[in-house]
Amino acid sequence: MLKVEKLRSSYGRIEVLHDVSLEVDQGKMVALVGANGAGKTTLMRAISGIQPITSGTITLAGASIQGMPPARRVSRGVAQVPEGRQIFAPLSVEDNLALGAWVSPTKIERNRARVYEMFPILREFRKRAAGTLSGGQQQMLAMGRALMSDPRILLLDEPTMGLAPLLARQVMQIICSIREAGTTVLVVEQNVQAVLRAADRGYVIDRGRISMEGSAKDLLADPRVREAYLGV
C-alpha cells in the first residue's frame, strides 16, 4: 500500500531524515518507534505532504504521490491523525466529522454512521463542542474525523499520548479494529510494548535513520529493543 524509499528531509540546513525506507502492506498495521527527536513525526508529515522532502520517493498503491499537495494526497487515500489531536475545539463533534469528509461529501452520512458505530460516545455527544470532550474522547474524534475521508492508509502520530492507561488500551484496541476492518495503518507510538504487541511489523528509527526492522513479534523480543525502549 505504501512504499517509502531513500527519503531525505531537512529543516533549513539541518537534515533530519537520512535515506529512510519502509513499506506498509495492504491491510496491515506497521509501528514506527524511536526516541524523541528521532524523526518519527517528520516522516509522517513527509508522507502526508506537510513536510517537504529533498530526495527519495513515496508511492501509494504503486503510484507516486511525492510532489502532491496534502489535499490531493487525502483525496488519493492518505489520512493523518496528528500528534496532539488538533481538533477544532469550538465546533461541534458533528461538524468536526463533517470537515473530515470534504473529499467525499456524497458519502458523509454513510461514513458518519460508520464512525458513530465505532465510537458510540461521539454519537451521544455529537452536538457538544469538541473542546469539552475528555482527552480520550478527543482522540476518538480525531480518528473518526480521519476515517470520514475513506482512507486507504491511516497515519497515527502518538495516539495514546497523555491518556490514562485504561484509555490508552482502549484506543489501541480501536486501532486494531480499524486494521481488522481493512484499513492499512502506520502508527507512531511511545508505548513500544503496546504497539509492537498490536502491530504486524515494526521499524525502529534512530537519529533520522532506520536502524532495525522486522516482524513486530521479533522486534519485541530483540534484546536491543528491550534494553533501549522497555528498560529490560
Rank of each mutant, 00 (worst) to 15 (best):
V232H: 15
Q170K: 09
L167N: 10
R207S: 10
E5S: 11
A31W: 03
E124A: 04
A199M: 04
V93Y: 01
I50H: 12
V74Q: 04
D200L: 09
E189W: 05
M172A: 08
I108T: 13
G27F: 03
G214F: 02
R197N: 07
G208C: 12
Y11M: 04
R179M: 08
R197S: 04
L154I: 01
V225D: 00
R85M: 06
L230P: 12
Q138R: 10
M148A: 07
Q170M: 08
E83I: 00
G56Y: 15
Q86T: 01
M212Y: 09
F119Q: 03
Q139W: 02
L122P: 11
N36G: 09
L155N: 14
N111E: 15
L155Q: 12
D218Y: 09
L60W: 07
R123Y: 14
A61E: 15
I178T: 07
T132N: 12
A142M: 06
A221M: 10
I178D: 12
T54G: 10
E23A: 05
L133C: 03
R197F: 02
G131S: 06
E5N: 06
E189K: 05
K127D: 03
I121W: 05
I50N: 06
G27Y: 01
K107H: 14
V103Y: 08
F88H: 10
L155P: 12
Q137S: 05
A228E: 00
E180D: 15
D19Y: 07
V115T: 02
I210W: 14
E158D: 02
R73S: 03
D95P: 07
T57K: 15
T54N: 10
P70A: 03
F119I: 00
G231E: 00
Y203V: 02
V115K: 08
I50D: 04
M143F: 02
V16W: 04
S21Q: 11
I174D: 13
L166P: 10
V24G: 15
R112V: 02
E117G: 13
A61P: 04
D157K: 14
Y203C: 13
L167E: 08
I175P: 13
I153C: 07
S10R: 14
W102D: 06
R126K: 15
N111H: 15
E158A: 02
L156K: 10
P159S: 08
V16E: 00
D206Y: 14
P151V: 01
A79D: 05
K3T: 06
C176N: 13
V30Y: 15
L133M: 06
L230V: 00
Q26E: 11
R209Q: 14
E180H: 14
H18M: 07
Q66F: 05
V24D: 07
L155T: 01
E15Y: 02
R76G: 04
L122G: 03
M143T: 04
S64P: 13
T184Y: 10
D206P: 06
K40W: 05
S64F: 07
Q190V: 00
N111Y: 14
G144P: 11
G136Y: 01
A194Q: 10
L7S: 07
Q66E: 09
S211T: 02
G62E: 14
A31P: 08
A228H: 01
L91K: 13
N96C: 09
G162W: 01
E94V: 06
Q190T: 00
G12T: 00
L163G: 08
G62L: 11
